[in-house]
Each structure stands twice: as structure tokens, then as C-alpha cells.
Write a protein that binds this DNA or RNA. Structure first.
Lengths: 188, 188
DNA sequence: GAGCAATAATTGTTGACGTCAATAGTTGTT
DNA sequence: AACAACTATTGACGTCAACAATTATTGCTC
């Protein structure tokens, strides 16, 4: 049983397709690669461009690397990137419902449960009953959690620095701005 | 036994406490949060910035989204992003050793095995014995594989377009250039 | 020319992760 | 009082990355 990549992701994430620029195809494929030689068939055929020609793939790959860097930098603290994300989110406000964490961070509600469990176990966060709705729990940072964030802030910056090493300050700023535009688009 | 954040990715199972910075007590939180009020403590403290202030985290998150988009766009073909990556890599050259695929694409050798298995099963690629080293296998694109790439190229472009929707052509170019610089740094 | 370290492909295992379905407790509405 | 919608939670399934171990093979060395 190989790997029939059957259903997985989900239902139609509202793919707003737009062929606007798809039409703008090269049209320069004169040589139809008769034989399979030519050590490096330069990208005169769109479908044989290198992967790095694709911004989407670059994002995918750099995202992986970024996540890995974050995780290794966090590993001695016993947390993972997702815990860190929750902590950082909690630090921006005044505590949040688990539901809120789920939608804002993009994690499944069932994932939030485990993450908050871990954070609670480490004393970095607490669940408190919501006063107005007994179904909800409000998750708040503890003083320990704040201290932890203070302590790992430098490490976080170091990771970002390492990742963006080849860029100067100016370029980092524009990169960040561009990424932010994309991220906010999808209501992340 | 929910999820003790113990050993996972690598060694260092230790939960590891860190008192180092715990001593570095606030100094600016005059109000020791006696209650849980104070609607929004503005980001005058670096460690309570929003997550989106971190380029690394943005990359991580957008990488996820990019991967998902790619996968959903590919799912009807029975392949996943990683298969597509292999195909695209094969298309750039003249076939490759599995070892080569592993190092260049950044996947574990054991992952390559399954990927090539699937591609072979679909008739998109073939394993051939390497003439000079009987340990190695050379993986080559079949004509079917080429046809498949031609067919899905438009879909790939559509995905990238959707992802980068909020950016105009100029901005996409600079984003791509910046990402490429980063990617090539780590020898991807 | 027989041993021996290194290497390529492979198998198997483990933990993290995303998705989905189901359930119990709760809320608001009718 | 009944019912639909919602929150947190549990459990299951499949994908995926990271490793360890194994087999076949190579190249080196003594």
C-alpha cells in the first residue's frame, strides 16, 4: 500500500482563483527537447524551471527551516514553536479564550488543549473560568510565563538574525513588510 | 498521559528549567497585575510584541499556508508537494541519484525511497541502475512524467498567484529575490 | 587479496502535526 | 421544556520529519 494521497487537507479553502497572469505564459518553447540529453536544459520551458523559480515553493521551504530553527532554539526549554506562539499571543493581550487562540493562531481546538496543558504544567499559563460563559476558559500568562518570555526573547531574535543573515537591515524591513501583507490577506 | 513536553525532536529530553533570566524581574510593571485588567499593554516591552512582529514566525506560518495550497492543488493528481518537488528537480537535469535528491531537496534519504516508489508506480519516473556504482540508482523522468509536469504547470502558477494575491508584479519580484538570497545561503 | 571504513538505498520506529468525528456541558432561543 | 449552536475535550487517522539500524557495495589499505 503505497501512499494513495487520499483526502486530507479539507474542503475547498475558498480558492479564489484568478487566471489573470496565468495567460502571461512565456511562449518560447521552440525546441521540444527531442532527446533527453543537454546537461542543463535551461528554463526555456516553464515546467522545467528549477524549483527555486517558484516563490510558493521557496516560502514552503524557508518556512520549514524557520520552524526548525525556532524549535531547536526552544528545545532546551522543553517547549516547541507552537507553545511559544501561544505564549506570545497571550502576552499581547490580557488572556484569551481557547477558542480565540484556535482561530487566531490557526491551530485546531484540539491542539490548543494539549498546548495549554503543557504550559499549565510548566506553570507558564493558567486556565481560569470565564465569568460570563461557563463553557469557556480564559487562559492567562502567569508571572513565570512572563519571565520565560523575557528570557527567550534574545534567543528568538538570534534565530531571526541567523535566518536572515544574508540580508541587511533595509532588506529585512522590506521582506517583513511584504510577508506581513500576504499574511494579513489570509486573515492569519 | 496527555503530552508531557518531554523528549521529542532530538536529544535533550530534559524539560530544563531556566532560572537564568527569571531573576531579571520586570522593572517596568509597576502594576503587578493585581487583577487581570489593563486592556492592552502596548508593545513597549519587546517580549510582548505580537507574533507578526517576528519575520521568522511569519515565514513559518506562510510556509505552512503555501504547502497546503500546493497540496490541495495537487491532490486530484494523486501526488503531494514532495512528489512534485522531486519531479521538478528531475526535470531540470538528466536524472539524479537518490542521494542527490536527498541532499538537494533536503529530504531524508528514507523519504526519497517512498517518493520515488510512488512516482514509479504512477509511471512518472523510473529507477535505473547506475553504470559506475551498483549501489546507486539513477532516477529519471519518463515521458509520462514530462507530460504531467506540462499539465500541472498552470495549476502551480495559479497557486503562487493566489498566495501572492496582495502583491503586485513588482513586489512579487523583490520578494522572490529576497527569499532566494536567504534560501541559497543555507545551501538549500 | 582479505579485511575494513565509508557509502547508497532501504526498512522500521518515534514523535510532531493537521484534520476530522464524536461527546459532555452550556448557552440562547423558541 | 425542547432544541439548535457552541466550547472544550477526547480519540482516531494519516502525513511528515528525524534517526537508528541493516544490506549491498565500493574503495582503501596492509
Amino acid at each position: 500500500m503505497p501512499r494513495p494521497p487520499s483526502g486530507a487537507d479539507t474542503r475547498e479553502p475558498a480558492i479564489a482563483r484568478q487566471d489573470d497572469t496565468v495567460n502571461a505564459i512565456p511562449t518560447t518553447d521552440a525546441n521540444a527537447t527531442p532527446t533527453v540529453n543537454a546537461t542543463s536544459i535551461d528554463a526555456d520551458e516553464p515546467w522545467m524551471r528549477g524549483l527555486h523559480a517558484d516563490t510558493g515553493y521557496l516560502l514552503y521551504r524557508l518556512g520549514l527551516r524557520s520552524g526548525q530553527l525556532f524549535n531547536t532554539s526552544l528545545q532546551e526549554s522543553g517547549l516547541r514553536l507552537r507553545h511559544y506562539a501561544v505564549l506570545r499571543f497571550l502576552a499581547t493581550g490580557e488572556g484569551a479564550l481557547q477558542r480565540e487562540l484556535s482561530t487566531r493562531l490557526g491551530y485546531d481546538p484540539s491542539a490548543i488543549v494539549g498546548l495549554v496543558d503543557d504550559l499549565e504544567k510548566l506553570g507558564f499559563a493558567e486556565r481560569r473560568p470565564a465569568p460570563d460563559d461557563r463553557r469557556s476558559r480564559i487562559v492567562v500568562l502567569t508571572e513565570n510565563g512572563r519571565a520565560f518570555l523575557r528570557g527567550t526573547d534574545a534567543a528568538g531574535l538570534r534565530v531571526t538574525n541567523e535566518l536572515l543573515a544574508p540580508l541587511d537591515q533595509q532588506e529585512r524591513a522590506t521582506l517583513h513588510a511584504l510577508l506581513l501583507r500576504i499574511a494579513e490577506d489570509g486573515l492569519n
